[in-house]
Simulated scan of single mutants.
Amino acid sequence: MTENAAVHYRCTDVSDMLRQAGLRPTRQRVSLAELLFSKGDRHISAELLHEEAVGAKVPVSLATVYNTLHQFTQAGLLREVAIDGTKTYFDTNTSDHHHFFIEGENKVVDIPGEGVGIGSVPKAPAGMEVVRVDVIVRVRPKA
């Protein structure tokens, strides 16, 4: 578990969680964090979070949702999962793990446990370091 993920689980409220992650707990950040983290581990797009916010009567624009999700990601509270460079999901589980992408449903789910083995990782280019290896396994219902 990352240090920031550990902070998330120790916090008693989202304002405290945001402060411990180095973010000022503005009204919009607190409202979005409550929507994000109150339902356990999940994968959510900015559009879906915006829909949830509108449904919860949180006055926030889609642009603010995007900005807030990226701020949460930079602070280590979320993990970004990019699918084909066209669709991005945000994962509240920041631990090292991999994902299934269910085609046709546009849904991301965690691959349980040690479901993926990585034999070797190429050496990073000069002056660079490998930060993380993300594996996304695309699945669909059998025909």
Score class of each variant (00 low, 15 high):
104 G>I: 13
73 T>A: 10
112 P>Q: 11
40 G>P: 13
80 E>K: 13
40 G>N: 12
24 R>P: 06
3 E>S: 03
62 L>K: 14
44 I>M: 04
46 A>W: 09
101 F>K: 04
141 P>W: 01
90 F>Q: 11
38 S>L: 04
32 L>Y: 01
86 T>E: 12
103 E>C: 09
3 E>G: 03
31 S>W: 00
22 G>E: 12
130 V>R: 11
73 T>I: 00
62 L>W: 01
2 T>N: 13
123 K>M: 08
55 G>I: 06
11 C>P: 08
133 V>I: 15
20 Q>W: 01
123 K>Q: 12
79 R>M: 10
41 D>R: 12
100 F>L: 12
112 P>K: 11
108 V>W: 09
124 A>P: 15
6 A>L: 14
15 S>H: 12
12 T>C: 02
134 D>F: 09
80 E>M: 07
97 H>R: 11
100 F>Y: 14
139 V>E: 05
81 V>M: 07
72 F>L: 10
115 G>K: 01
105 E>K: 11
59 P>H: 03
38 S>I: 04
55 G>W: 09
130 V>W: 06
86 T>D: 08
32 L>M: 14
32 L>C: 11
37 F>I: 02
39 K>I: 03
140 R>E: 13
43 H>D: 03
45 S>E: 03
95 S>W: 01
71 Q>K: 11
125 P>G: 05
92 T>C: 06
82 A>R: 08
31 S>H: 05
92 T>S: 15
84 D>Y: 06
90 F>T: 07
74 Q>E: 14
117 G>T: 10
65 V>I: 14
139 V>L: 07
135 V>P: 11
42 R>Y: 06
9 Y>G: 05
122 P>D: 10
106 N>Y: 01
36 L>M: 15
104 G>T: 11
60 V>C: 02
140 R>A: 15
142 K>P: 00
65 V>H: 10
12 T>S: 07
86 T>F: 05
98 H>N: 13
119 G>P: 03
130 V>N: 07
31 S>N: 07
142 K>E: 14
43 H>I: 03
26 T>V: 00
91 D>H: 08
